[in-house]
Amino acid sequence: MTQRRGRDETDDERADRMWGDLLQEVRVAQTGVQVLFAFLLAVVFTPRYEQLSQTDQTIYIVTVVLGAATTGALIGPVSFHRLVSGRRIKPETVRWAHRLTNIGLVLLLGTMVSALLLVLRVAAHNAFVPWIVGLVFLWYVLCWYVLPLWARYRHRAN
């Protein structure tokens, strides 16, 4: 029975706790991506889609593929757990789910930015669109990666 610094828990207890935390995090991301993906799937069936430029249709296709990949990565941990449940490999399951979630978040970043690009190109038709999308991209990177990594670095265990 191995003990870790910071908490008095075994490896299995730690894996159980981390699994619960991960599921809560994935639920938040899954909900958002599923709503966005559903919206994206419907767009192609509207009369307006045919009026989009070739560039906008390409951005749409890229966005849908990113949304599908994001959905796969963020639902992956649930399937992974379901298929290996009872095999006594919870710590490994948590590591794989962690990887899939990180991949899903990177894909979600791409999905959100490309969806925003498409919507603003159609809605605004001006030269400021790339700048606005770039600023939102930087905002996402700051909120999702820079601040957490800064906190991790600043508060690392000695």
Rank of each mutant, 00 (worst) to 15 (best):
R4N: 10
G6D: 05
D8M: 07
D8Y: 06
E9T: 00
E9M: 06
E9I: 00
D11M: 08
D12W: 12
D12V: 02
D16R: 04
M18R: 03
W19Y: 04
G20H: 12
L22H: 12
L23R: 06
L23D: 13
E25M: 11
V26I: 04
V26E: 01
V28K: 10
L36F: 13
A38G: 15
F39R: 04
F39C: 14
L40C: 01
A42H: 05
V43I: 11
V44S: 07
T46W: 14
R48L: 13
E50R: 08
E50A: 12
E50G: 11
L52I: 04
L52W: 15
S53C: 06
S53M: 07
S53W: 08
Q54S: 07
Q54L: 08
D56P: 10
Q57G: 06
I59R: 04
I59E: 12
I61K: 05
I61Q: 10
G67M: 05
T70S: 14
A73F: 15
V78P: 05
S79K: 06
F80K: 10
F80I: 13
F80L: 14
H81M: 08
L83T: 15
L83K: 13
R87N: 14
R87V: 14
R87M: 15
R88S: 15
K90W: 13
P91V: 01
E92T: 02
W96K: 00
A97V: 01
A97Y: 02
H98F: 12
L100M: 10
T101V: 03
N102P: 06
I103E: 01
I103H: 03
G104Y: 10
G104I: 00
V106D: 01
L107K: 04
L107Q: 03
G110D: 10
M112T: 06
A115T: 04
L117K: 00
V119N: 02
V122D: 10
V122F: 05
N126F: 12
P130S: 09
W131D: 05
W131E: 05
F137P: 12
L138V: 07
L138R: 04
L138D: 13
Y140C: 10
V141F: 14
V141L: 13
V141S: 02
W144C: 09
W144S: 10
Y145Q: 11
V146L: 07
L147N: 03
L147Q: 02
L147G: 00
L147H: 06
P148L: 04
P148S: 03
R152S: 04
H155P: 12
H155C: 13
R156Y: 09
R156Q: 04
A157Q: 07
A157C: 00
